[in-house]
Design a protein around this nucleic acid. Structure first.
Length: 256
DNA sequence: ATGGTTGTGTTACAA
C-alpha cells in the first residue's frame, strides 16, 4: 500500500498539478493539507474520476485536510480531540484497509512569544494524547502530514538563520520526540539515516533554486506499521514545476 | 536590502 502526503497550499489553485502527480505517482492513499476550502467546494468529481474516495475536513480560506483513498474509508473522524472550542481544521483520521491513517496540518507557531506558539504547543500536547490513545488499538497507525517541525539541524539548510523560528525551537522538537517516545518512528529517518531530502522550500528569495529547504513533512509509524515499511521517498521533482506548491509530496510503502 | 512570493478574499493575514 502506497501512502502519500502533500501540503498543496490550496487544492483549487493546485488542482492540475495534483491530478497529474496522482496519475504519475499512483498512490493508494493520499493525505492532503492546506486545502484552503470548505467541503462543499472541494473538487470531488476530478478525484473520483481517478478512482479515489474522499474524506474531507475543510475550512474557509485557511487550513483544511483531506484523505483520498482507492479503498473505502471507514470510521472517518474529523478534528483532533481535546478542545471542543478549536475551530481550525487541521486533523482527519480514517481507516483504510485496516490501517488507521491521520492527515495532519500542525500549527506553524510563528511568531514566537505569543498566542500562535502557545497554540502550537497545546496542539502538540493534544496530538500526543491522541497518538497514545491510538496505540491501544494495536492497529498499524500512520500519522502523516505537515508537522511544521524540523526534527534536527540537518533537516534545515541554515539552522542559525532559523534560531528564532517556531519550526526549530527546542520545545517544538521535544514535543515531536515525546510522540516518538510513545513508540512511533520517523519513516524517512529510519530508512535514510543520513538522508538530506527537504520537503518544503519557501516561495521567496529563490529558496528552491538555491535548495534552501526544510524537512517538515513526516510519516510517524506505530510498531505494527513500521514492521511493514518497505520504502519512503520524497518526490522532489514536483517542486520544480510551474505553479508548484511550496511543499513537495512524500510517500511510504507498507507491505500489503 | 527588516527585502522577497503565493493564496484567500478583500486590501490584511498566514505561511
Amino acid at each position: 500500500m502506497k501512502i502519500a502526503t502533500f501540503n498543496v497550499n490550496s487544492i483549487r489553485a493546485r488542482l492540475p498539478r495534483v491530478l497529474e502527480w496522482l496519475e504519475d505517482s499512483q498512490p493508494d492513499v493520499v493525505c492532503l493539507q492546506e486545502i484552503k476550502c470548505t467541503n462543499d467546494v472541494f473538487p470531488a468529481i476530478e478525484f473520483q474520476s481517478l478512482g479515489y474516495q474522499l474524506s474531507v475536513h475543510g475550512q474557509k480560506a485557511y487550513n483544511g485536510v483531506a484523505i483520498l483513498s482507492k479503498s473505502e474509508p471507514v470510521d472517518v473522524a474529523p478534528g483532533l480531540p481535546g478542545d471542543d472550542g478549536d475551530e481550525q481544521a487541521r486533523y482527519l483520521e480514517a481507516t483504510i484497509e485496516g490501517v488507521r491513517i491521520a492527515s495532519i496540518y500542525l500549527p506553524n507557531g510563528n511568531p514566537l512569544g505569543g498566542e500562535k506558539f502557545a497554540y502550537k504547543l497545546e496542539w502538540m500536547e493534544r496530538l500526543h494524547e491522541q497518538a497514545k490513545t491510538l496505540l491501544k488499538s494495536e492497529m498499524p497507525i500512520v500519522l502523516c502530514g505537515d508537522f511544521n517541525v524540523c526534527p534536527r539541524d540537518e533537516d534545515c539548510y541554515d539552522p542559525a538563520a532559523f534560531a528564532n523560528d517556531a519550526l526549530m525551537q527546542p520545545e517544538s522538537r521535544a514535543a515531536l520526540r515525546r510522540i516518538e517516545f510513545l513508540g512511533y518512528t520517523d519513516a524517512f529517518r529510519q530508512l535514510k539515516p543520513a538522508g538530506h531530502d527537504y520537503t518544503f522550500w519557501d516561495y521567496q528569495r529563490g529558496a528552491w533554486q538555491k535548495d534552501n529547504g526544510l524537512r517538515i513533512d513526516h510519516f510517524l509509524l506505530s510498531p505494527q506499521a513500521l514492521d511493514r515499511l518497505q520504502a519512503c521517498e520524497v518526490e522532489r521533482q514536483q517542486r520544480a514545476k510551474e505553479k508548484a506548491s511550496d511543499h513537495t509530496p512524500i510517500w511510504c510503502k507498507l507491505e500489503v
